[in-house]
Computed example of a mutant assay.
Amino acid sequence: MSQRPTVVVLDYGSGNVRSACRALSRVGAEVELTATPEKVLQADGMLLPGVGAFAAVMQQLRAVDAPRLIDMRLAGGRPVLGICVGEQVLFEGSAEKGDCEGLGQWPGRVSLLKAPVVPHMGWTHVEVPQGSHLFAGVEDQRFYFVHSYAAMCDPAQLMSKGPTALPLTTWAEHGSSRFVAAVENGPLCGTQFHPEKSGEAGLTLLENWVKML
């Protein structure tokens, strides 16, 4: 029997991470909630959760040296998956409550959704690009969103073409906003929605990610 891949869920003070831990365990991962640097760096995969305001999350991440740890993981080609605000902080910054710098892994900034009702809360279909590995088998499904801010620009269009493949961007809509629902970029992936709260479709997406570890 093959060994279960190890996944660290980064423990930096973000709330509501138990459901993500349970979902990852259910789809075949050996999961640990920790911020111990050695464990974060050695795990096969790292999940970056995020609940709350962008600036507060960034402050909490810096307190556990997460920017450096994430850089080190990605430099070694070790997978990282950001969820909700954990996906937003991978961009250059956010306009939420002023202006706050993010981790800068992807170009572009996060801004307020333009819609009659904010936050965007509920189940929404997504527009999946060809070649997606994360969404294999669930391309036509809906996923669960809870957010008021999102990235609106395609990071692939803002990145210079080079020897590495450009990110694959999945889109969704709320009100008049077309926003980034997910990004696949080699070892770095992110989803604006909560896969751990998205039923069987979300579990399939997490299982697809775990299989890539």
Rank of each mutant, 00 (worst) to 15 (best):
Q3I: 15
Q3T: 14
R4D: 14
T6A: 13
V7H: 02
V8S: 03
V8R: 03
V8G: 04
Y12C: 06
G13I: 00
N16R: 02
R18P: 00
A20S: 12
A20F: 08
R22C: 05
L24A: 05
L24N: 03
S25R: 00
S25I: 00
R26N: 12
V27G: 05
G28W: 04
A29Y: 07
A29W: 06
E32L: 11
T34P: 05
P37M: 09
P37T: 12
E38Q: 13
K39V: 15
V40D: 05
L41V: 13
A43S: 13
D44S: 14
D44A: 15
D44L: 08
M46A: 15
M46N: 06
L47D: 02
P49V: 06
P49H: 05
V51A: 03
G52H: 01
G52I: 00
A53W: 01
A55I: 01
V57R: 02
V57A: 15
Q59W: 06
A63W: 02
V64G: 06
A66E: 06
P67K: 05
D71V: 10
D71F: 09
R73E: 04
A75V: 12
A75H: 05
A75R: 09
G76S: 11
G77V: 12
P79Y: 05
L81T: 05
G82M: 03
G86A: 07
E87N: 11
Q88I: 00
L90H: 00
F91S: 04
G93H: 04
S94Y: 01
A95K: 13
K97T: 08
G98A: 10
D99I: 12
L103Y: 04
G104E: 05
R109L: 07
V110F: 01
S111N: 07
S111Q: 10
L113G: 09
P116A: 11
P116F: 15
V117P: 00
V117E: 11
V117T: 13
V118P: 03
W123N: 06
V126L: 06
P129L: 09
G131M: 12
H133P: 00
H133Y: 01
A136L: 13
G137E: 08
D140E: 15
D140V: 09
Q141L: 09
R142I: 14
S148Y: 06
A150V: 02
A151G: 08
M152T: 10
A156S: 09
A156I: 07
A156D: 03
L158K: 04
S160R: 11
K161Y: 07
G162E: 06
G162I: 11
P163S: 13
A165Q: 13
A165L: 12
L166M: 10
T169C: 07
T169I: 08
T170E: 01
W171V: 08
S176C: 07
S176R: 15
S177Y: 08
A181C: 11
A182R: 03
V183T: 10
V183I: 14
E184D: 12
P187A: 14
L188W: 10
G190E: 04
Q192N: 07
H194W: 01
P195T: 08
E196H: 04
K197E: 01
G199V: 14
A201L: 12
A201M: 11
G202D: 10
L205M: 15
L206G: 10
L206A: 11
L206P: 09
E207A: 15
W209R: 04
K211I: 12
M212C: 13
